[in-house]
Nucleic acid binder design. Structure first.
Lengths: 199, 199
DNA sequence: TGTACATCAGTGAACGCGCGTTCACTGATGTAC
DNA sequence: TGTACATCAGTGAACGCGCGTTCACTGATGTAC
């Protein structure tokens, strides 16, 4: 009932706007991400976000960065929960990849398809970090064709393409369980190094 | 100078609207596809398209169908120009795939990412036909993991994912020549049947 | 052959909507001296 | 400690824009009889 000035009043509006953006995207797809929308969600005037994001693209970039952080965390969690061994870690990462894309299709589109500021160092770092997860678990397993670059691009293309086909509506992959089954059949086709006795 | 009634006056407005849509998408990306836009392009009132497309999604679906037709033709042309042999045909198809996606990024997005009427039989057939090109050239070459479904999905995921990474802005793949080189290194990693003496 | 009618594609004006943006302002906070 | 000033985040009203949509209409074409 008091005035309580230094309380959680306006903690961090910038973060609140980003979180609101992620919620809007989850509920209405990537096109639901608007300046007026996040402002209304946070309960602030629609001119307020201008002080934190100069343009809609800047807001979108910030949402994409947060998306990459969560994407990275999702893949790391999948690795942590996987049975031991490098092959299991790689498969778990791939499954985590496509599962995230299915559970957050709008956010995925913001991260990979919508126009963002690719020159933003924070975006580059966030995207690179999520990329590195896949690169890290691929390196010990895949017997790549042309060094590290080819190996990583191979694995990433396969996981990303599979996700894109799901989100693109390919009828045979619309059932999540079946799609994962297909993925588990496909993935071991990649040229793997011989197992090095992890049991 | 005469009135010439039965001349190429209003040949086929529906097709003209679709062509205009493809041009708009090429010039301004998939978001440039609007009812008012195609009407203005054709030189017709903005209420006219309603007689041919009930909703924006119906127009978008028609553009996506035409896109799939052109996509199919592009891959067939790449196959026709390739050196003889099933492996060469497969690689050429993959290259044709990613090349089309780079040359028509907006149309590619309409075809695979934007909301269209996936129940439309014409759309299903057009998408299936382009899919079948990749399936056809894959079957004799790839030693698939789990029958035809797995084989086709494997090849498609790889080509589609590679394209998506390019369009998504992955820095290392922005140079077309270098991207194709990487793709040519990656692709043969797939488990191929032994060559059956095609020379 | 002629008449009446239905159908259909396109017109042009109008509508409401959500959007990004601008602008003068307010009020709180920080800082120089 | 006090005063004057600058800075900054947020407000609320207003603007113009392009959008999909609606509606009464026009004019051409096809069809029944």
């Amino acid at each position: 009932m008091t005035d309580r000035k230094p309380l959680p009043k306006k903690k961090n509006i910038r973060e609140a706007l980003i979180d609101a953006g992620i919620e809007l995207v989850r509920e209405g797809g990537s096109k639901a991400l608007t300046i007026r929308g996040v402002a209304a969600r946070v309960g602030v005037s629609h001119a307020a976000p201008k002080h934190h994001f100069a343009t809609l693209e800047a807001l979108r970039t910030a949402v994409a960065i947060e998306g990459h952080h969560r994407f990275t965390a999702a893949m790391e969690a999948a690795i942590a929960e996987a049975p031991p061994g490098p092959r299991e870690a790689l498969v778990a990462t791939g499954i985590g990849y496509i599962r995230f894309s299915r559970e957050h299709p709008g956010l995925f589109q913001v991260m990979f398809s919508d126009p963002v500021d690719r020159e933003d160092p924070a975006f580059q770092e966030a995207a690179h970090t999520s990329y590195q997860v896949l690169a890290r678990v691929s390196a010990p397993v895949i017997h790549g064709p042309a060094g590290a670059e080819g190996t990583e691009t191979l694995v990433w293309s396969l996981a990303h393409g599979f996700s894109a086909l799901i989100l693109g509506g390919k009828p045979e992959l619309q059932d999540p369980a079946h799609a994962e089954e297909v993925f588990r059949q496909i993935f071991p086709v990649l040229p793997m190094r011989p197992p090095q006795g992890h049991r």
